[in-house]
Simulated assay, not measured.
Amino acid sequence: MFIKHLEKHTDAFYLCALGDDKTWVSSCLRGSFKYSPLNRLTFKNFYRYYYSLKYVVSPAYAYLDRYAVKKAKAIIAGLDDYFLAYKDLPNVRLIRLPISRDHFVQPKYKDLEKEPLVIFHAWQKGKELKKGNDILHEAALSAVRKYGEKKIKYVIASGLPYEEYLKAYNDCDIYLDQVYSYDGGVTAALGMAAGKVVFSGYELFAEYSGKAPNSIKNVGVNASSNLAQLEESLFYIIENTHVLDDLKHKAYFYALNNYESIMIAEKYIDVWTEGEK
Rank of each mutant, 00 (worst) to 15 (best):
N218Y: 12
G201W: 12
V186Q: 02
S200T: 11
G195V: 01
L190H: 05
A212Y: 08
G195M: 04
V186E: 08
N218H: 07
P213Y: 02
T187G: 01
E207N: 12
T187K: 10
K196G: 07
A188R: 06
G191S: 10
N218L: 00
M192H: 06
K211S: 15
S209F: 01
A188W: 05
I216N: 02
N214C: 06
S209I: 09
K217R: 15
A206Q: 02
G184D: 09
E203Q: 14
S200Q: 03
V197Q: 00
V198A: 15
G185V: 03
N218E: 03
A189L: 05
T187Y: 10
S209G: 14
K196T: 00
N214Y: 08
A212I: 05
M192K: 04
G184R: 01
M192Y: 03
A194K: 09
A212N: 06
L204G: 08
G191V: 02
G184N: 13
G185E: 04
V186H: 00
P213V: 09
E203N: 10
Y208R: 00
L204S: 14
V198S: 15
M192L: 12
A188F: 03
V186P: 00
V197D: 09
E203T: 13
N218D: 04
Y208A: 06
S200C: 13
E207M: 01
A206T: 10
E203C: 05
G201Y: 12
L190A: 02
E203I: 03
F199N: 03
K217C: 13
A189R: 01
K211F: 11
G201N: 14
Y202T: 01
A194I: 04
K196E: 04
G195R: 09
P213D: 08
A212G: 03
P213G: 07
E203F: 14
V197F: 05
N214I: 10
E207Q: 15
E207V: 12
G195H: 03
V198E: 10
E207A: 12
G210E: 15
F199I: 00
G184E: 05
M192S: 03
E207L: 08
A206S: 10
G185M: 13
I216S: 08
G201F: 13
G201K: 10
F205E: 15
T187E: 02
N218A: 03
A189F: 05
L204E: 15
G210Q: 08
G210I: 04
G195C: 02
A206Y: 07
V197M: 13
Y202H: 14
K211Y: 14
V186T: 09
G191P: 13
S200I: 06
F205Y: 14
V219T: 11
A206V: 00
Y202V: 00
K217T: 15
Y202C: 13
E207K: 08
V186W: 03
V198M: 11
S200L: 05
G195S: 09
K217H: 13
N218K: 02
G195D: 01
G185F: 06
A189S: 11
I216W: 07
G191M: 06
K211E: 15
V197C: 10
